Simulated scan of single mutants.
Amino acid sequence: MKKISLLVISLITMASCQQTQKIGFVDNSKLINEYQEKIDVEAKYKTMIEASNKNTDSLAKAFQAEYQEFQAQAASMPQDKAQARYQQLGQKQQMLQQQIQMSEQQITVESQKEIDSLISKVRKFVKDYGKTNAYDYILGSNDAGSVMYGKEGDDLTDELIKALNDSYKK
C-alpha cells in the first residue's frame, strides 16, 4: 500500500513538473516603430510641424522687414519717437516668440497624448493576443536588456506587427 501511494505521488509530481509554460517575447521598439498607426501619427505631426515652421518663417521675415524699415527711418526720427517705436517692436517680437512657442508646445502635447494612447492600445493588444493564443507570459525586450536572449521561435515581434497592422487597417 505504501509503495502504491509513493508511486502515485511520484507520478503526480513528475506530471506536474512536465507542464511547460508558453512564453514569447517582443522587441518593444520594433513593435511600436513598425506599427502603421504610429507611422501615420508621426507623418501627421511632421506635416503639422512643417506647416508651423513655414508660418514661423513668414512671421519672422515680416517682422524682420518691419524692423529693417524702422532702422532705416530711425536716424531721421526724433529720439523719443524712435525709442517708443523700438519698444513697440521689442514687445511685438516677444509676442511673436510666445505665439510660436505656444504653437510648438501645443503640437508637442497633442502628439504625446496620441503616442501615449497608441502605446496603451499596443499593450492591450499584446495582452489580448497572449490570452487568445494561450501564452503564460509575453516579455518585452528593449535596449535596457529585460530579455537578453530568446529563441527565435519565441520571438513574436513580426507576428504581432502583422496582427496589429491588420487590426489597424480594419
Rank of each mutant, 00 (worst) to 15 (best):
residue 1 M to R: 04
residue 1 M to L: 01
residue 2 K to N: 08
residue 7 L to P: 00
residue 11 L to F: 02
residue 11 L to Y: 00
residue 14 M to A: 09
residue 15 A to P: 00
residue 15 A to E: 00
residue 16 S to Y: 09
residue 17 C to Y: 12
residue 21 Q to Y: 12
residue 23 I to C: 08
residue 24 G to A: 05
residue 24 G to I: 01
residue 25 F to P: 10
residue 26 V to F: 03
residue 27 D to V: 10
residue 28 N to F: 14
residue 29 S to K: 08
residue 30 K to Y: 09
residue 31 L to H: 04
residue 35 Y to I: 04
residue 35 Y to A: 11
residue 35 Y to G: 01
residue 38 K to D: 03
residue 39 I to P: 09
residue 39 I to Y: 07
residue 41 V to L: 08
residue 42 E to W: 06
residue 43 A to L: 06
residue 44 K to W: 00
residue 45 Y to D: 05
residue 45 Y to G: 04
residue 46 K to T: 07
residue 47 T to A: 10
residue 47 T to N: 10
residue 48 M to G: 07
residue 50 E to N: 13
residue 50 E to S: 11
residue 52 S to I: 03
residue 53 N to Y: 06
residue 56 T to S: 14
residue 57 D to K: 14
residue 57 D to P: 03
residue 57 D to E: 15
residue 58 S to N: 12
residue 59 L to D: 11
residue 59 L to P: 06
residue 59 L to V: 09
residue 60 A to E: 09
residue 61 K to E: 14
residue 61 K to P: 05
residue 62 A to V: 08
residue 63 F to R: 01
residue 64 Q to M: 11
residue 64 Q to L: 08
residue 65 A to L: 08
residue 66 E to A: 07
residue 66 E to K: 13
residue 71 Q to C: 04
residue 72 A to I: 14
residue 73 Q to F: 04
residue 74 A to G: 08
residue 75 A to P: 09
residue 79 Q to C: 00
residue 81 K to F: 00
residue 81 K to A: 00
residue 82 A to Q: 10
residue 83 Q to S: 14
residue 84 A to W: 00
residue 87 Q to D: 13
residue 88 Q to D: 14
residue 90 G to M: 15
residue 91 Q to N: 09
residue 92 K to H: 07
residue 92 K to P: 03
residue 93 Q to M: 11
residue 93 Q to P: 00
residue 93 Q to F: 06
residue 95 M to S: 14
residue 97 Q to R: 04
residue 97 Q to P: 04
residue 99 Q to W: 10
residue 99 Q to F: 12
residue 101 Q to N: 08
residue 102 M to A: 15
residue 103 S to V: 08
residue 103 S to W: 08
residue 103 S to A: 11
residue 103 S to D: 15
residue 103 S to L: 13
residue 104 E to Q: 15
residue 105 Q to G: 12
residue 105 Q to S: 13
residue 106 Q to I: 03
residue 107 I to L: 13
residue 109 V to H: 03
residue 109 V to Q: 07
residue 110 E to P: 02
residue 111 S to D: 05
residue 111 S to T: 12
residue 113 K to M: 08
residue 113 K to T: 12
residue 113 K to F: 05
residue 115 I to H: 03
residue 116 D to Y: 05
residue 117 S to N: 12
residue 117 S to Q: 09
residue 117 S to I: 06
residue 118 L to P: 05
residue 118 L to F: 03
residue 118 L to S: 03
residue 119 I to C: 04
residue 120 S to P: 01
residue 121 K to G: 02
residue 121 K to L: 07
residue 122 V to M: 08
residue 123 R to I: 07
residue 123 R to A: 07
residue 125 F to E: 06
residue 127 K to C: 14
residue 128 D to A: 10
residue 132 T to P: 13
residue 134 A to N: 15
residue 135 Y to P: 12
residue 135 Y to A: 07
residue 136 D to W: 02
residue 136 D to H: 13
residue 139 L to W: 05
residue 140 G to E: 15
residue 143 D to I: 15
residue 144 A to Y: 12
residue 145 G to C: 05
residue 145 G to A: 02
residue 145 G to E: 01
residue 145 G to L: 02
residue 146 S to H: 14
residue 149 Y to A: 04
residue 149 Y to P: 01
residue 149 Y to S: 03
residue 149 Y to W: 07
residue 150 G to Q: 03
residue 151 K to M: 10
residue 155 D to K: 00
residue 156 L to T: 06
residue 158 D to T: 05
residue 159 E to L: 10
residue 160 L to A: 02
residue 161 I to P: 08
residue 162 K to F: 00
residue 164 L to D: 02
residue 164 L to W: 00
residue 164 L to I: 01
residue 165 N to S: 02
residue 166 D to I: 04
residue 167 S to Y: 04
residue 170 K to F: 01
